[in-house]
Amino acid sequence: MEEWRFIDFGLVDIRDMMAMDEAILKGDGGNTFFFWTPKKSIILGFFQKADVELNLARCEGYTITRRISGGGIAFSDDRCRQINYGVVGTIDNELFPLDIIESYKQICGVLIDTLVHYDLNAAFRPINDVVVDNKKISGNAQTRWEGKLLQNGTLLLDFDIEEMLRISNIPEEKFLDKKIASIREGLTWLDRELGEERDMEEVKDIIKQKFEERFMVGLKPGTLSKKEKMLTKNLLPKYYSHEWTYR
């Protein structure tokens, strides 16, 4: 069986993680699956402006940076009960389809298989969400570079929705009032769905197992290569810079 690299970065500063994320995409480590858990933070999508999307006066205590993929804010509260993952793979039309939505569907399938394992009614909702009974439980974002893809996503185990609304800049437009209600009613998390707290390591093990089954590979623990470490070092100043985050 083919072996792919697996790394669990544990609890991380998102600026360090986003640098490693980009380094894995642009590095020489081959197909890789990795986990991390973000400390209290906000990651802006590539096209989002901090002062437009966030109520910055209320964001004290949050580490903020930007990622290289589009999509919306990835908000992590200090409960730290989110499993974030990354996949880097060579686009080959079989395991990682060229079609963007198909490739989201394929990778999100790992999370769906995991949620189904817990007897939940999970499904893919294009373009980039996984839902349980039509409520979003996982957001995902993909970018591509020289024939490879990088997909990041999160599986919420617990989530402080009121805190997220507090730091967000929700527009006052009328039709967006409905959006606030739909955010509140449209999100869910694993602890709520199962009615109990599951051990995060246990859930990660299931995700890993479902990944191996879906991609028909073995995941072998590894580390960043020399080249990836060098790339990370060079990328760190960007993710720590005011220019990148608040551009």
Binding site: G45, F47, Q48, S69, G71, G72, I100, N128, T143, R144
Partner: peptide, 29 residues
């Protein structure tokens, strides 16, 4: 695919400057 917020300045019916913020996806970014 997502929300698009535009900030636009124009003069005499001609676009001078636009910035955009949103949670859509675009390849290449």
């Amino acid at each position: 695919g997502g929300l698009i917020r535009s900030f636009v300045t124009s003069e005499n019916g001609i676009i001078k400057d636009i910035t955009i913020s949103g949670d859509f996806f675009m390849f290449p970014e």
